[in-house]
Design a binder for these strands. Sequence first.
RNA 1: GGGAGAAUUCCCGAGGGGCCAAAGGGGGCAGACUGUAAAUCUGUUGCAAAUUGCUUCGAUGGUUCGAAUCCAUCUUCUCCCA
Length: 376
Amino acid sequence: MYQLLKNEGTARRGVFTTADGTVQTPAFMNVATVAAIKGALSAYDLVDIGTQVMLCNTYHLHLRPGDEVVARRGGLHKFTGWNSVILTDSGGFQVFSLAKLRKITEEGVAFNSHIDGRHIFMGPEESMRIQANLGSTIAMAFDECVENPASYDYAKMSAARTTRWLARCKAEMGRIKEAGAATNPNQLLFGINQGACFEDLRIENMQQIAEMDLDGYAIGGLAVGEPKEEMARIITAVEPHMPKDKIRYLMGVGTPGDIIDGVARGVDLFDCVMPSRNARHGHLNTWGGIINLNNAKYAEDDSSLDEHCDCPTCRHFSRAYLRHLLKAGEMLGMRLAVMHNLYFYNTLMAKIRTALDEGTFCAFHRQYVKILDQRI
RNA sequence: GGGAGAAUUCCCGAGGGGCCAAAGGGGGCAGACUGUAAAUCUGUUGCAAAUUGCUUCGAUGGUUCGAAUCCAUCUUCUCCCA
């Protein structure tokens, strides 16, 4: 259940209550595709870095270890030791990212496993059954994330099909719960808006899925290579048609600046691989911008990563040491870097919430939206 | 003591008269990454007043229009026989 506490323009401050825990929004969900945050972070580390929601992936967990294995362990919460909110992505993004290995029909998508090449079929019903086995707090509807650029005709056809898939997802989830076969009987379902970069398709699609009374609504298919102005244009066009009393999720976004902009445009939830992937590659977020620790100039820099950050990494280690660990390919380097970047993102969201609470988000936006994405 | 082989750029290593500032790795430097097939991918890596010029293939000297490449001597290393 979503409760809007306060708003500043279209920006919203709220609380999302679930059976597994409460999420203060706006929030950034930390991506743990295969039920682990890459960089050797466990559920216990997530508590230390201020994580509210862990995000896992249906397709990846279906392949390995297998959703039924997870179900027999009591679901993702027991399996991972993370006792708060878990969102599972439906596998829809893999329709996009594994494009070379798949074939899409009305029924669903045929994949070749990226692990061993074996034939896999996933449609709305399969995705719902897998997510029911995984027992996440929130299941995402199975969608097609269309590549950019997309033709108008393809985007229209695909969005309509994704909506038909959504109806099947809702029906299948109902059947599973009725049969008592869900690992988590309180599992929620979010629908996903598609329509590429065409405002009329986006709006029409949003209006259709808004009528389906889902637990939350996501905007998908953005941040897939289109210019930032395009993304902003689409969010601004769709937002007025999203239910005010439901939580809104902008999938796969983004940079700190993208997130601040997203909040300003009325989004409550975000997720992105950037903080963890960039951290592993030496790109660290600071309150003054992004630094690339691989750069030679940090080889003898004894200062902490960010003097304004009090994460475990910044409290104890120098840039020179972190750079050495990263260069040497040590797991510790990645772990410390990922902890910092996720702490940074989680802290960014906390600051956004405080600004909204205090009615100063507009000033916060002005101060940080550009600088945080800059390279220094 | 006798015989055989080898020395190439930061490292390993290809190249056996002109198309060689010299393949390919590694390392270095730099860049990319947006619901993670991503410890991946891309560029670059002798110097400079830079469509060119200069220096570099163990050292010195030679052959040749032209040498990393052929010859002589030397140095160092490896292997085999004593």
